[in-house]
Design a protein around this nucleic acid. Structure first.
Lengths: 191, 191
DNA sequence: CTGATTCATTGACTTAAGTTAAGAAACAGG
DNA sequence: CCTGTTTCTTAACTTAAGTCAATGAATCAG
């Protein structure tokens, strides 16, 4: 099951025999059942995840309502804001499907980085890319209507619409389930 | 004028004599006149900025309209998404006031980090903090109404309302200038 | 299999944002 | 000081999102 990690790393760096062996030695691949909370509000976080298979979401509880703010699927990294910080998390992280993921801890990271500095460089570069994507997403949010955001989602992450309940998509788009339902109707009619 | 940089760094790390001298040697403080474009759409970016004095904004051009997505003021870092990446910028960065800023380049960063690794660690930590803030801001955007966002802005960055044109605040909040004007009226009436 | 819950849709209604247009106020440059 | 521009506000109107309530479909647990 480490194959996916190996494939992923290979896209960006040359995975040496030593690194491959090292990764094989460490037992950091875990499975989580659908419904598992990887993190809860108020708790601290000492784990980050690299999704090999499955789907995960972040959500806040606001006025008793669940507000979904992010979905993570195959080949995405889930790094809680509170990760390694001894700070209370403001949100939950829930497995929407059975999940297979690589699990990282600050200790494990330090260990790997010391032996394989190229992994740290890669991680930094990926972090920068994630940051740039956040900035883009925020800009998109400020500049577009809910309908445009939904159309954009269809283009960029069509898989989500198949595997995630619609009311969670709605709050991910920042609207109510009723509004999303009407937007879908409007789009179908327009075609 | 390096004093501000020194004061800022001191908040987070011990600034040794050597580091202080080194910073004094390098001439990386620059001034920019109000109206200067620090970066334009389509251009690449080899500079990042640390604002010592003044105010700067990011904006996109969409359908001929300027869409302001971020403001930066004293003690904030402006790191274009395209910084050091040889990629074309999707947005502009403009000085809204006369600006005094520390200017960083990838070369200068490498140089400093080699001599003073603690600066690199600090930078990484600050990067993480900025990332967490982005995530928060995006979540806030999805969960709140324009009016709530405006009220929140009054609390968190009251200075902006004094130094920045209102129509730029409006697009920063993701709404039209007319809407913001009405929101303000509503709030005043409610008091 | 069945009753209960969750989910998506729809309708009626309210509220607020977008749009267009116009005018007043503030500001900048010559 | 005057003039043209930018900025902000207001109004009338349109459009769409929020809210509340009801219904049917799908899903889940016992």
């Amino acid at each position: 099951m480490e194959k996916e990690i190996y494939d992923y790393l290979s896209k960006y760096i040359h995975v040496t025999k030593e690194l491959e062996e090292e990764l094989g030695k460490i037992d950091f691949i875990k499975r989580f059942r659908k419904g598992t909370m990887l993190l809860e509000e108020g708790k601290t976080s000492n784990e980050c995840y690299f999704i090999i298979k499955g789907c995960v979401r972040d959500f806040y509880l606001k006025d008793g309502e669940e507000k979904t703010t992010e979905f993570y699927t195959e080949e995405q990294a889930v790094v809680p804001s509170a990760y390694g910080k001894n700070a209370a998390s403001e949100y939950y992280i829930e497995c929407l499907e059975d999940v297979i993921a690589g699990v990282g801890t600050p200790q494990l990271e330090t260990e790997i980085y010391q032996k394989f500095p190229q992994v740290e460089s890669l991680n930094r570069a990926l972090g920068d890319a994630i940051m740039a994507k956040f900035q883009d997403t925020l800009a998109e949010f400020k500049m577009t209507s809910p309908e445009e955001r939904y159309l954009n989602l269809i283009k960029t992450r069509p898989d989500l619409l198949q595997r995630v309940p619609q009311h969670q998509i709605a709050s991910f788009l920042g609207i109510t389930p009723e509004s999303l339902s009407r937007i879908r109707k409007r789009i179908i009619k327009a075609k």
